[in-house]
Simulated scan of single mutants.
Amino acid sequence: MTLVLENNAARPRSKRTKRPGLWLMLPAAAAMLLAFGAPLIFSAWYSFTGWSLVRPASKSEFVGLSNYTRVLTDHEYWQAIGVTLTYAASAVTIECILGIALALLLNKQMFGRGIFRSLMLIPMVMTPAVVGLFWKLFFEESDGLFNYFLTAAGLPALPWLGVSMALVSIVILDVWQATPFFMLIMLAGLQSMDRNIVEAAEIDGASRLQVFRYITLPHLVPYIMVAAAFRIIGALADFDKIYLLTFGGPGNVTTTVSLYAYNRGFKIFDIGQTTAISWLFIILVLTITAPLIWHLLRGSSTARH
């Protein structure tokens, strides 16, 4: 009887202790809602208007779905979609493979592991603008560092920023900068793995390849999905380094959706069409990342049950 009374008395007290926490979170939640929600609402409205900066009175001109129709029927938009998807898929795939390989290497006891791990983080913390300008010195066809070494070795110089290789060059750039992100997450996954299972498999005669295929890789799948979701969003939205490296050229070879929207907004000054492109881009990102997030949430709920 005493225990029942004590439990009943403890319930209201626990509810009361939660309320101050909710009230303390309310200002931060309101600020985030205002900072992120208000621009989304305004951009959604302007995507249905014919607002152009060269026609100030057009700000409140309602045009319905005209902006979306113009974008979806534009050949350059679909070309930008193809470039964006090719760039993101290629870069994220290579980053995932290299990230797992480097994590497996750094998970072992080796001389200079801490120094190498610290050096690997340098590309990740550099700003995209600096990275774009930095790598442009490497990719220059006439006096770039890469072609200098190629010609010194007796090999022909390559048009790194030409039509045939510009997309490959921005993929190389993104792989260099973002692979450490994959490596860190994969390394965290490897260090959280139960070593007893691996040792038991090795005692039973499993080879290193079998241990990786049947134990290590399944354990890393959730970590791969988390890293892939973040990097897919980042790669799809890349703008700074691509703009500074190639300006979306030559022609439209490296014009991603972000650069396509930039050209519509700051060269043609069509704000209505630019906001429509932004909302179509949000739908594209959600369509690609939603299956990964759903799989992760389903996996976590299954693990709890």
Rank of each mutant, 00 (worst) to 15 (best):
M1G: 15
V4L: 15
N7T: 11
A9N: 14
A9V: 00
R11A: 15
K18Y: 08
G21S: 06
G21Y: 04
W23S: 10
L26Q: 01
A29P: 00
A29L: 15
A29S: 13
A30Q: 05
M32Q: 11
M32T: 09
I41K: 07
S43K: 06
S52Y: 05
P56R: 06
K59D: 01
K59W: 10
S60N: 13
F62D: 08
Y68N: 00
V71M: 07
V71P: 01
T73E: 12
E76C: 03
Y77V: 05
Q79T: 12
I81V: 15
I81S: 08
I81W: 06
I81D: 02
I81K: 04
G82A: 13
G82K: 06
V83H: 03
T86C: 11
T93K: 01
I94V: 14
I94L: 11
I97M: 14
L98M: 13
I100E: 04
L106W: 04
K108A: 13
M110P: 02
R113W: 06
G114T: 12
R117D: 09
L119E: 00
I122K: 00
P128N: 06
P128T: 02
V130S: 13
V130K: 09
F138C: 09
S142I: 10
Y148D: 06
F149V: 13
T151N: 13
G154T: 04
L158F: 01
P159C: 08
M165F: 14
M165Q: 14
A166L: 09
S169Q: 07
V171C: 07
W176E: 08
T179S: 09
F182C: 05
L184K: 02
M186C: 13
L187Q: 02
A188V: 03
M193N: 02
D194R: 00
R195F: 07
N196A: 14
A200H: 05
A200W: 02
I203E: 00
D204P: 09
L209V: 08
V211W: 04
F212L: 14
T216R: 02
L217Y: 11
H219R: 00
L220G: 08
V221I: 12
G234C: 09
A237R: 12
A237Y: 06
A237N: 13
L244C: 01
T246S: 10
F247A: 14
V253G: 00
V257K: 07
V257N: 01
A261Q: 12
A261W: 04
Y262N: 10
G265T: 06
F266W: 07
F266D: 10
K267A: 12
T274S: 15
S278A: 15
L280N: 07
I283P: 00
L284S: 10
T287M: 09
T287Y: 05
T289C: 15
L297N: 10
R298M: 08
G299P: 02
G299F: 04
S301M: 12
A303G: 11
